[in-house]
């Protein structure tokens, strides 16, 4: 195995993603109609459809963080290929698990989960390109707020609040673009100081 992957505790990273996938499945498998109207309708779909994929995305970002920043910043070896492969392994597994979890309940469109994962991963990768991963985790409550706000927002606002729980062509495109931008930034930039 390449020293790049040895430095990253691949088995621990994969284990973390698998555990989060199982938690997502457990949350999503709660039947929404069984919950009382107020919080059943508002919180559970938002948590299982939007928030859990974002949490998995931010976790993936934390796992993608460099364990030896100075060494990698002053490396003479180009690491873009390794970074791409590692991101593909971690995020690919997460997408597979989330899509698997999304098949459990009846109400879930699969696209939505992958969309929020892309947005969460992309945004947190962009944040960690300049700031510490703690700031990336602030994305979780922020995202929860935006999701819950858009849940009952007027139709006119939904295309603007692209992170909402309703998938639209516009929101899917923006979230995927954010994901791609985040991964591209991670792959091409050296680890932050």
């Amino acid at each position: 195995m390449s020293p790049y992957f040895r430095a990253r505790q691949l088995s621990r990273a994969l284990g973390t993603v698998v555990v989060l996938g199982l938690v997502t499945a457990a949350v999503g498998s709660r039947r929404i109609p069984a919950l009382p109207p107020g919080f059943g309708q508002e919180y559970v779909p938002v948590i299982s459809l939007a928030l859990m994929p974002v949490i998995v995305g931010v976790t993936c970002t934390t796992l993608l963080e460099s364990p030896a920043r100075t060494l990698e910043r002053t490396s003479c070896r180009g690491l873009a290929a390794h970074r791409s492969l590692y991101a593909l392994i971690i995020c690919g597994l997460a997408i597979m698990l989330l899509l698997g979890a999304a098949t459990l309940p009846e109400e879930k469109p699969y696209l939505l989960v992958a969309t929020h994962f892309a947005a969460g991963t992309g945004l947190s990768l962009l944040i960690t390109a300049w700031l510490s991963d703690t700031f990336a985790w602030l994305l979780v409550p922020t995202y929860a707020l935006l999701s819950l706000m858009v849940w009952q927002a007027a139709d006119a606002w939904r295309p603007i609040l692209v992170f909402g729980p309703y998938p639209t062509q516009w929101s899917v495109a923006v979230c995927c673009a954010l994901g791609a931008l985040g991964v591209a930034t991670h792959v091409t930039r050296r680890p932050r100081e």
């Binding site: 989060l20 949490i55 934390t62 796992l63 703690t134 979780v140």
Partner: peptide
């Protein structure tokens, strides 16, 4: 990492 995930 555990704290970040559990807290979220």
């Amino acid at each position: 990492l555990g704290l970040l995930i559990v807290a979220a």
